[in-house]
Amino acid sequence: MGNKFVVADPARCIGCKTCMAACLMKHDVAGDVADARLRVTQTYDVSAPVACHHCVDAPCAAACPTGALYEDPTHGRVAVREESCIGCRSCVMACPFGAVHVDVRSEAVRMGNLFVGTRSKAMVVKCDLCVDREGGPACIEACPTKGLTLMDDAGLERLAAARRESAVQA
């Protein structure tokens, strides 16, 4: 246990995608993929961004043949070792939330300082909880309705306690 994840309150979501823009901008740096890790998803009745749940028994990590996806207990998340990704997309197939995708980009192949060509490099793109960002996940900070929260064990316990309370009152 101990993993955290970004969770949305659909009653507060106004579908503005500011969370997606914030996520994309956080990752728009050299060596990273400028893409939103969470997707605002809209049905007739519901609007909410969907992001990685950082599952404790993560099916994406279990499906990964090279260990590119792994449990990172230090930060309470499922993390990515990008150099190991071979682009097999087993993780995409395994994720029950549709929260993982694989991006392919082209990078230079060099022998010493000599440029000899390019090759395709795959990279798993998923929520990393912005662990290298001061102030935590960029999406949570950007949401204009404060509809996103970082759920952890304490938060889950508070939620469960509230549910138990309403259960005995019912």
Binding site: K17, M20, A21, L24, M25, D28, A34, D35, A36
Partner: peptide, 8 residues
Amino acid sequence: NCKALSLL
């Protein structure tokens, strides 16, 4: 020409 917005 705003990169973030045009990527979305």
